[in-house]
Simulated assay, not measured.
Amino acid sequence: MTNGVPAVFLDRDGVLIEDTGYPHLEAHLRLTPGAAEAVRRLNQLGYLCVIVTNQSGVARGLFTEDQMKAFNALIVRRLAARGAIIGAVYACPFHSDGRIEAYIHPDHPDRKPNPGMILRAIADHRIDPAKSFMIGDQPSDMEAARRAGVPGFLFEGGDLDAFVRDLLGH
């Protein structure tokens, strides 16, 4: 889609926030170094920033979908307070090994490495995949990006803003 919006798809745990093992409470929320600065930089360059996150903790019964949504909203607010705007959040609560019946699915189209969340975001927000990319910390993130037709870049820790700056050359 020409004239579409450029976007950056961001994994949540391990990219925007520290992966503390199924984080879902305010006490668990620790932004990674440079997270707010990276999102602000991407905003200033005209990118729509979209979180795409697998959240199997819902299916596993570790927290509810409402808790997941509240925690995601808290992340968005925490970033916004530092001038970093997240345009949309997509979260997949489904998992094949779930304990909560409603969230058990053998291979949900939204669960990375499947590209469902990215493809939905592209459709919902008139995103141009040719001007967009994914930043994730897992092979499943890279595979979801590949299947959605967008480049994927593996973030292996450190300062997210430095990573983005190096990636974009400014």
Rank of each mutant, 00 (worst) to 15 (best):
A88C: 02
F163W: 06
T2P: 14
L42W: 11
R126G: 15
A91T: 14
L48F: 11
V15D: 03
P23Q: 08
L62D: 00
G98T: 06
L10E: 00
I104G: 13
A145H: 03
I100A: 01
N54C: 03
A145W: 05
L79K: 08
G98W: 05
L74S: 08
E26F: 01
P33F: 02
N3E: 15
D11A: 15
L154Q: 13
D107S: 14
R120A: 14
C49A: 15
G14I: 01
P151Y: 07
A91Y: 13
I75K: 05
N114W: 01
G152R: 09
A80G: 15
V164P: 07
A36K: 02
R120M: 12
Y103H: 08
R40Q: 04
M142C: 01
G4M: 10
R147C: 06
G83L: 10
I135Q: 01
A123Q: 13
R41V: 05
E65L: 15
D166E: 13
R30T: 10
P6I: 06
A148E: 07
I85Y: 12
P6T: 10
I100F: 02
M117Y: 12
R40C: 02
D159T: 09
G149W: 08
P6Q: 13
A91I: 05
S56K: 10
G21A: 13
L160M: 09
P23R: 04
V5F: 12
I86R: 07
Y47Q: 09
P151N: 06
L62I: 11
N72F: 09
A36S: 12
T20G: 04
Y90N: 04
V39N: 07
E65T: 02
D97L: 08
A88L: 08
G61M: 04
P115T: 15
C92W: 11
Y90W: 08
M134F: 13
V76R: 08
D110S: 00
A73E: 14
Y90T: 13
V8T: 07
F71C: 07
E101V: 13
A80R: 12
F71K: 00
N3A: 15
F155W: 05
H105G: 12
R41M: 13
M142V: 12
R77I: 01
Q138P: 01
D141M: 08
R120Q: 14
A35R: 04
R30P: 00
R82A: 15
V52L: 12
R126A: 15
T2M: 15
A123T: 11
I85T: 09
A27G: 00
D128G: 05
R120L: 09
G46T: 06
L167Y: 13
P109A: 11
S140D: 08
S140I: 05
F133W: 13
V164H: 01
E143Y: 11
L16H: 11
Q55S: 07
C92H: 09
S132Y: 01
P33S: 01
A59Y: 07
Q67H: 05
L168I: 15
L119H: 00
C49Q: 10
A88V: 02
G4R: 00
F153N: 02
F9D: 00
A144D: 11
Y103D: 12
Y22D: 02
G61H: 10
V15K: 09
I100T: 05
L16A: 04
V50C: 05
L10I: 04
G136K: 10
A36I: 00
P23I: 07
